[in-house]
Simulated assay, not measured.
Amino acid sequence: MSKTLNSSLHDFKHRSPIQIRFNDIDQLSHVTNSVYQQYFDLGRLNYFTDVFEEQMDWESKGLILASITINYLKPIKMWDKIEVLSRIVEIGNKSLRMEQKIMNHSMNSIAAESQCVMVCYSNSLGETIKIPENWQKRIIAFENSVKLRVKI
Rank of each mutant, 00 (worst) to 15 (best):
F22S: 06
D80A: 07
D26Y: 03
L42F: 00
M78E: 12
I70N: 07
D80Q: 02
D26F: 04
D50T: 15
Y47N: 01
H30D: 06
H10I: 15
E54W: 00
I70W: 09
D80N: 10
Y47C: 03
G43V: 08
N46P: 02
D50W: 11
D41R: 05
R21I: 13
T69L: 02
D41C: 06
E59D: 14
I20R: 02
D26E: 08
L65W: 06
E54D: 03
R44F: 05
L73P: 01
N71E: 13
M78V: 00
L65G: 03
D57L: 07
S7N: 06
L73K: 11
M56Y: 06
L28Q: 05
K13Q: 01
Q55F: 10
D57W: 11
S8M: 07
I20W: 02
P17S: 02
W58I: 15
S7Y: 01
Q37E: 04
K61V: 14
W58V: 12
H30F: 00
G62S: 15
P17Y: 06
F52P: 08
T49V: 11
L42A: 09
V31F: 12
Y72M: 04
S67T: 12
P75S: 06
D50E: 10
H14E: 00
A66M: 10
E54K: 13
P75F: 03
S34T: 15
I64Q: 04
I18F: 08
K74C: 03
F48L: 10
G62M: 10
K13W: 06
A66P: 00
F12S: 00
D50K: 09
I64A: 05
T49N: 10
F40E: 04
L63S: 09
I25F: 14
N46I: 00
Q19L: 14
V35K: 10
D24N: 08
S7T: 01
N46S: 05
N33R: 13
R15L: 04
Q38F: 12
N23A: 14
F52C: 12
Y39H: 04
Y47I: 01
I25N: 07
S34P: 03
I25W: 11
P17L: 04
P75W: 02
N23K: 09
Q37K: 03
V35D: 10
N23E: 14
L65T: 12
E54L: 07
N33V: 09
Y39M: 13
K74E: 02
I20V: 15
S8C: 06
W58A: 14
D80L: 05
W79G: 11
E53T: 06
E54M: 14
Q38E: 15
K13L: 12
E59L: 12
R15C: 08
P75A: 05
L63D: 12
T49D: 13
L63T: 08
Y72C: 02
D11K: 08
L45A: 00
S34Y: 08
G43H: 04
F22E: 06
F40A: 07
L42D: 08
Y47S: 00
N33Y: 14
H10Q: 10
A66D: 05
L63E: 03
L28E: 01
